[in-house]
Amino acid sequence: MKEYFQNIWYGFATILTGMRVTFKHLFVPAVTIQYPDVKLQLPERERNRLYVNMDDCIGCDQCARACPVDCISIETVKSIPGEDLGKTSNGKKKALWVTKFDIDIAKCCFCQLCVFPCPTECIYMTDVYEFSEFERNKLVYDFVTLTPVEREEKKANYAKLEAEKAALKAAGTPPAKPSEKVGD
């Protein structure tokens, strides 16, 4: 009998305590962050979307080989003699036209392994994380600065040079100028 009334009392007391707690929390300011309007400060070394500064890229393909998921694909074309590609910001001479530099960011696992081998530190993580798309192929980013026409031109130039060299070789003459050897 005593237990019975104790139960009732205990039930009421605990319910009222609980209700007091929830009532107090009604007036506690919400911790919600109104996301698209208010954004949290990201940590300094966060890993998000990759960016490649093509001005500095020498087309060495190191990043592509470091990538564990093979989401970077690079194609390069040797420059023909007489073309000046300029220098990278840390003083390396560029010798290759990069005609394809695609990063399929949908495959990327943000491991940052591609960032460290880069000799010119031109591939790096940015703080952009809102890049959803409705179509998956839109997530393949093309970083090449050359226009499609220019890319074809560079390829054609190099093919022509090769053809000329081959023709010269066939004619038995040594090549007029040795082609620069950069990369592998």
Partner: peptide
């Protein structure tokens, strides 16, 4: 709204 504010959230905004 009530449930949200009781849980220190904002609810639909």
């Amino acid at each position: 709204k009530v449930s949200a504010h009781m849980q220190d959230r904002l609810g639909p905004m």
